[in-house]
Each structure stands twice: as structure tokens, then as C-alpha cells.
């Protein structure tokens, strides 16, 4: 996305610390979030929600700063007019229509009444609820309610939306639809997103960048491709005779080990591929796959716990 925000961070924190009594929820966190879709990944209790509340201005930091579009939201609530937020838990009224509710929410973010009604209709169309917009929200399915939750976060055309566990409670089909909608919001609508989740698959398939948080600290941050690029490990999958293949590889001076159903070896040179081929032939095994392994986001947590 290009525009007035291009180049400067939408969200930024400096030594952001939040303490609840004796509990340290965030410990001197430095975050910079730019345009695009950013995933805030971490297990439950890692500090994701606290970080979001600080950026929404619902909490004040114990020390450090949290800024949205250059403003501190806990000092100036008006900056929230350019932010959207989709909470994890139920947050919709039952007894009114989605159309009326969204119109009201748009007005609550500063859009004049007539424009608010138009925006409500447009957004409900974009999230696939055009036909159902005059039905009471209590008649909606869980998936439809989740879309209304997203729609209310977008109805005032924010610069950025914060989505807290947006796929919580959805079945696999509904989850994929919601992730697609999030990707469209980020890529087609040009609205930047910070998505918090404890599901690595959601983050990996949707986000451009990832911030990994655990125990109130940022443990990694970078682009998704950075975490999933090729590694220096080769993975060999054979149908059977794994032990014989390992012995043949070791006979050729290649360090090999069995990892689950695969054999892994450290990549050293291009000639190594010939040795591997010969070892498989010698062991009389049937080759299924020989490929460099890719990093996985879960490796970050493995490294941390190690």
C-alpha cells in the first residue's frame, strides 16, 4: 500500500512494559509494524492481547511508549477513528439488523449519518452478507457473526485493523473463508492488518510479517519467507530400508540421521547429491523425495524451548 503512511510505522513501541501487580505481561518490547499483514504469534498468555490493548489505548503502559500513527492512543483517543478492532469474543447485539448496527458503528467512528449507511451496505457486500443485511444478528450463524465482527472493524475505512484470534470458534471451512477475507482486506482493500493468533498455520498462510511473542518478550520478528526459507538440511524419503541407506551414506563419509520417517543429512557440496544417489542404489531402497528442507515457524518455539 502506498499513501500517507508509506515508509513510517503504523504501530510502534519503544521499551513497552506492562505490569499487572506482580505479573509482568510485557517486558520492554520494541515493535514496528508497517503496511501489510502482520501476524502476532504466540501461545495463550504470551502478551498478545495486552499488546493489542496498549495499541488501542485501552491500557496505559507501565513504562515505555506505544504509538499508533505517531500518536499515543492512551493519551489521545481520537486516533482510534483510524483504527479498527475485531475482538476474539462475542461482541454483537442480538436484536438489531447488521445494517443498522454497522451504520451506528461507522457513526461512532466519525462518519456522518448518510455516508455511514452507504459504508455499512458496501462493507456488508464485501464480507458476503449483502443478502442478509436486514436480518437480525441473532439469526446469523457463527461464521456470519464473525464476518459482521470483521465488517464493523472495517466500516469506517481504518488505516489499520487489529484482529484478535479472528478464526476462533470456526469450523475448517469457515476458517479458510475468514482467512481469505483477511487476505483480501490486506491485499485488495489496502487496509493494513495486525492479526493475533496462536495458530501457526493461520499466520503462515495469511501474513507478510510475523512477530513472535512469548512470556511478554519478542523472541523473533521478520518476514514469513525469512522463517520458511530453505535450510542447509537435505531430507531423504525412502519407502523402506532406511537403516541400510543411513549405513551406506555413513560409508561414504556423509553424516546422516533418521528423523521420523525421513533421513536428514547436512548439505555440504553439490557432489554430495551423487554420493546420496549411489548410497540409495547400494542400499537397494526406493527413493520418494530428495529435497532441501524448509524452515517452519514452529522451529522458533523449538529453538526457544531448547
Amino acid at each position: 500500500m502506498t499513501g500517507p503512511t508509506a515508509g513510517r510505522p503504523l504501530l510502534q513501541s519503544n521499551s513497552l512494559t506492562k505490569r499487572y501487580g506482580d505479573t509482568l505481561a510485557l517486558d520492554s518490547v520494541d515493535i514496528q509494524v508497517f503496511d501489510g499483514i502482520t501476524g502476532l504469534l504466540g501461545p495463550n498468555g504470551a502478551g498478545k492481547s495486552t499488546a493489542m490493548k496498549l495499541f488501542l489505548g485501552l491500557l496505559s503502559p507501565t513504562s515505555g511508549t506505544a504509538e499508533v500513527l505517531g500518536e499515543k492512543p492512551y493519551e489521545n483517543v481520537e486516533v482510534r477513528a483510524r483504527l479498527g478492532y475485531m475482538p476474539e469474543h462475542d461482541c454483537l447485539p442480538d436484536a438489531i439488523t447488521a445494517s443498522e448496527f454497522l451504520g451506528h458503528m461507522a457513526q461512532m467512528s466519525g462518519i456522518p449519518a448518510v455516508a455511514a449507511r452507504t459504508r455499512a451496505a458496501d462493507i456488508l457486500r464485501h464480507v458476503g452478507l449483502d443478502e442478509e443485511r436486514y436480518r437480525h444478528i441473532k439469526e446469523y450463524s457463527t461464521g456470519m457473526k464473525q464476518r459482521v465482527k470483521l465488517a464493523q472493524a472495517l466500516v469506517h475505512d481504518p488505516v489499520m485493523v487489529l484482529l484478535d484470534e479472528p478464526t476462533a470458534g470456526l469450523d475448517p471451512g469457515g476458517r479458510e473463508e475468514m482467512l481469505q477475507l483477511i487476505r483480501r482486506t490486506g491485499r485488495e482493500f489496502g487496509i493494513s492488518i495486525m492479526l493475533s493468533s496462536h495458530l501457526m498455520g493461520d499466520v503462515e498462510s495469511t501474513c507478510d510479517r510475523i512477530i513472535v511473542i512469548e512470556g511478554g518478550k519478542i523472541i523473533e520478528q521478520g518476514t514469513v519467507s525469512q522463517f520458511t526459507q530453505e535450510t542447509e538440511t537435505l531430507v531423504i524419503d525412502v519407502d523402506d530400508r532406511r537403516d541400510e541407506v543411513v549405513a551406506a551414506l555413513q560409508g561414504r563419509g556423509i553424516e546422516a540421521a533418521i528423523d521420523g520417517l525421513s533421513i536428514v543429512v547436512q548439505r555440504q557440496s553439490e557432489e554430495q547429491f551423487d554420493d546420496i544417489r549411489d548410497a540409495i542404489v547400494e542400499a537397494d531402497a526406493r527413493l520418494r523425495r530428495l529435497a532441501p528442507s524448509r524452515g517452519q515457524i514452529s522451529d522458533i518455539f523449538r529453538r526457544t524451548s531448547a
Binding site: 488501542l56 485501552l58 483517543v77 481520537e78 486516533v79 482510534r80 477513528a81 483504527l83 478492532y85 475482538p87 469474543h89 462475542d90 461482541c91 454483537l92 447485539p93 442480538d94 458503528m105 461512532m108 467512528s109 466519525g110 464493523q152
Partner: peptide, 18 residues
């Protein structure tokens, strides 16, 4: 009461009001 019970208050409190 319905605002708190249904959670709509969560959406109000992230709008530009205190």
C-alpha cells in the same frame, strides 16, 4: 446491561470515546 452482556461495549470502548 445488554452492552456489557453481549460484549458490544468492547466495540464502543475502541471507538474514539472514553
Amino acid at each position: 446491561i445488554p452492552d456489557r452482556r453481549s460484549g458490544v461495549i468492547n466495540l464502543y470502548l475502541v471507538r474514539p470515546i472514553t
